[in-house]
Design a protein around this nucleic acid. Sequence first.
DNA 1: ATGGGCCATGTTAACGCTCACACTCAGATG
DNA 2: CATCTGAGTGTGAGCGTTAACATGGCCCAT
Lengths: 328, 328
Amino acid sequence: MNDVARLAGVSHQTVSRVLNHHPNVREDTRARVLSAIAELGYRRNSAARALVTRRSSMIGIVTSGSVRYGPASTLVALEQAARSAGFFVSVSVASHPTPGAMRDILETFMDQSVEGVAVIAPGREVADAARAASGQVPVIMLASVPRESGGPQTICVDQELGARLAARHLIGLGHRDLVQLTGPDDWFDAQARVRGWRAETEAAGFQPRPEIEGDWGSDRGYEVGVSLLADLPTAVFAANDQMALGLLRAFAEAGVDVPGRVSVVGFDDIEGASNFYPPLTTVRQDFEALGKTAIDVLVAAIRGVTSDPASIPPELVRRASTGPAPAL
Amino acid sequence: MNDVARLAGVSHQTVSRVLNHHPNVREDTRARVLSAIAELGYRRNSAARALVTRRSSMIGIVTSGSVRYGPASTLVALEQAARSAGFFVSVSVASHPTPGAMRDILETFMDQSVEGVAVIAPGREVADAARAASGQVPVIMLASVPRESGGPQTICVDQELGARLAARHLIGLGHRDLVQLTGPDDWFDAQARVRGWRAETEAAGFQPRPEIEGDWGSDRGYEVGVSLLADLPTAVFAANDQMALGLLRAFAEAGVDVPGRVSVVGFDDIEGASNFYPPLTTVRQDFEALGKTAIDVLVAAIRGVTSDPASIPPELVRRASTGPAPAL
DNA sequence: ATGGGCCATGTTAACGCTCACACTCAGATG
DNA sequence: CATCTGAGTGTGAGCGTTAACATGGCCCAT
């Protein structure tokens, strides 16, 4: 920086002012400094800057380890939004979100003195860690749970609404014998999809079959599909597309007509869902909007402004796997 | 740090020595310092440390924007390996890898003074950027191209071998009328899979049909599947599982028996491939090993040691979508 | 005894930047 | 004409850490 200052014939402080877009610099001085910077290929040292300003320009993102569709897309959206807000992004993957591993991750972030943390929290363990961190820095949690008082800011795609859309769609097609293949009970998304499903079917005045618990995996979907063959409902709502895929295979192998005999709805609209056999009706989530909103809220919190984000509405994508209820 | 020193009754330098595991500290002094640190909840400031040591303990990872299976899994593996090697990880997503965007990303990394960069390079644009960066810091590129002289270190899963495994499998089953549905021609992986495919079929003494170019997407797979109906080969090698999925739908809808009439092989073993209809024979890549090796090489390069990593062998996963060639 | 070497510790000076303040000089104001 | 104001710039200190050197014991070989 001193070299730049010397070359431009000013003091280091003026160089600093130019770099920080300080208003009180004469136009031609600014130009001289800028050209000196260009000539020397100067970059300011972010460590020194962080040291004196006590701001690292860095935010941490915790994502779950699974290469599942949702987290991965959200991560991409978060990174984009954060970078365009002028922050560096430090990512940590929590493959096995034990309390110890989560503590490690958050300590790593504190060591880097991140200014804020975004946590993609699929379940309780990660959410607990997010709560613990929220005392020290601003935290935004991406999780489909209502915000707890004293807990971190929370934002999500409205999972309940998604499940309601699925239910409403099936009910509208005349289905009455419905069942949900849920996600694991300890996942927030799974819980919310159950809540929405129940709420909508009850509102329509009838009761679906008891839910069957799944594990998000297509193998489990297949297994459940096979077991349903003995006593088929007219429609199945799989809480994610992977499980729907397994269901579809089970039905296809057994020669069960989808959607003629049984309709199937998924959740996520993963890549390829439009080419399942048959193409899958599913609920699409706007992860990009989610990520962007999350970063907006987080950045606001870093600047000391609290905002109260709305949840993102999902959208039903109608494809060939659903049709009118069969006359039985 | 001074507070810690005062509480422990030593100088700040001794505290520093304890923190850096310097050998020449008496055991009881070390204990006093450690307990003072614990009592005060002290964390050392990484910006100050980076300032004076000129080492940021940070590596940058550039990943392609697609939520495609490979990059996502690799990213996870890279992060894990980097963190356990004691580095922070800064991630940037290159959704649209234009030269400008790539330059921005790399400048962001330079501003953070990362010590090394790992680049997941699916194609030429990103690889060019990696080459440009490799003059300034150590770079490891994850891309299925041979290392160019003067270019960055390169590592990959052996795509050619993967394609050969697929071809060998089909040829072993008696197939002679083969076609590959390739990835986009400007992707390294796509090129390598074509090379391996041709090499293996030629070695077996015959020529497959000219390749059909795809775009990795399942829609294109479906489209190609439909167009093949008029003149079916006995086996199709889809250069990724998504396209295989589209093929399978086209065949299923047309009532073409897979694998009775036509066998299908994919590539990637994405989540759910085991529950396609029928379950997909495919080539699995060990992204975890890839990521770990990449970081090992990068860290070695940062420490000034160059190593020459071997490529990772992929593995054929046999499932129901392939069978003996039909007698025609 | 004397000095050399090693261990444990302290002291001082950077690292590269921004902040707070001081200064100068123009023009406006009384 | 004295005074104030503010824009443009420079000066010095200090952010929290580590590196380099300095110090003072202690032990051992001379």
